[in-house]
């Protein structure tokens, strides 16, 4: 772990990149709903077509869009084969021991595989076109309605942004601690269960101590400056959606409603 994984974000200037983060997340949620609601071949066909357009408009390339799918390809194949062989044993094509591939199984396998791939592609487009920090800020504005239920959204927003800022520091610290313990002869490759627990102690205990020390220092500093959790906080103003953003929201909503009603 030499370097903090920078996530999937790739800077760009496409129309999808330029959309506001909160709108993108909102559209993502609607699309997720649409994927979960899809039942028929036509339903999936529309979604696949839409995802294709999404990849085209975001200019991220098919490779990037499918990157995490490739990592899970074996998982997908196993799920597919399991469904193919075990799902509908009533009228199988052929029966070999417990394996009974059937038409229903084939369809069920395709169904699940396509659903997972669609979710991942849509999620990838969101994550590749939006920087993590902006993404959290987008989430914060979407949290605002929760205020009606007396949920302290400002406090949550503060916690989330502090967490985001802590990640690189803690990452470096964890790396240093790990190296220091290896230099002291720590080993993480023991076979026995209790030894395994013992082996992670030298890593986990110091990482938590260091992290909590930072938390202690920061909270003292914040209190010393008179910070209270109920105070309003400067927030990124996202403003009203632009014409294109309205179009995106409406398209996604129509897609979702179509899936529920007709397809």
């Amino acid at each position: 772990m030499n370097q903090l994984p920078t996530g999937m974000y790739q800077p760009g200037t496409s129309v999808v990149h330029q959309m506001k983060a909160n709108i993108k997340i909102f559209c993502f949620l609607i699309l997720t709903g649409a994927v979960l609601m899809a039942e028929t071949i036509w339903g999936y066909a529309v979604l696949v077509l839409f995802s294709g357009c999404l990849i085209y408009f975001s200019k991220i390339g098919l490779q990037t869009a499918l990157s995490s799918v490739r990592r899970l390809i074996w998982f997908l194949i196993i799920i597919f084969v399991m469904n193919l062989c075990f799902y509908g044993p009533e009228n199988p094509w052929i029966k070999i021991g417990i394996f009974a591939p059937s038409y229903e199984g084939l369809m069920q396998g395709v169904h699940i595989a396509v659903r997972v791939i669609l979710m991942m592609v849509i999620g990838n487009v969101l994550m590749v076109t939006t920087a993590p920090l902006v993404l959290t800020e987008g989430m914060e504005t979407l949290l605002l309605p929760l205020k009606l239920f007396r949920i302290p959204t400002e406090q949550i927003a503060m916690i989330l942004s502090v967490a985001m800022q802590f990640i690189p520091t803690l990452f470096e610290e964890a790396d240093m601690i790990k190296k220091a313990q290896i230099a002291r002869g720590a080993r993480f490759d023991s076979k026995k269960l209790l030894d395994k627990a013992g082996a992670v102690m030298p890593l986990v205990v110091p990482i938590f101590l260091a992290a909590f020390k930072r938390a202690d220092e920061l909270s003292l500093a914040m209190e010393a400056r008179g910070y209270r959790t109920d105070m309003a906080r400067g927030q990124r103003k996202f403003g009203m959606p632009t014409g294109f953003e309205w179009l995106a929201i409406i398209t996604c909503s129509i897609l979702c409603i179509l899936q529920i009603l007709c397809l």
């Binding site: 610290e173 240093m176 601690i177 190296k179 220091a180 313990q181 290896i182 230099a183 002291r184 002869g185 720590a186 102690m201 030298p202 205990v205 110091p206 101590l209 260091a210």
Partner: peptide, 29 residues
């Protein structure tokens, strides 16, 4: 690791055992 000892910046961060004796003896295990 036995022949080369490394004292990193802030070595106090690497303490984790329940007693001083056990922590100092960690690398000797």
């Amino acid at each position: 690791h036995r022949k080369v000892g490394v004292v990193f910046q802030h070595p106090e961060c690497q303490l984790f055992e329940t007693t001083v004796e056990r922590d100092v003896a960690f690398s000797l295990k």
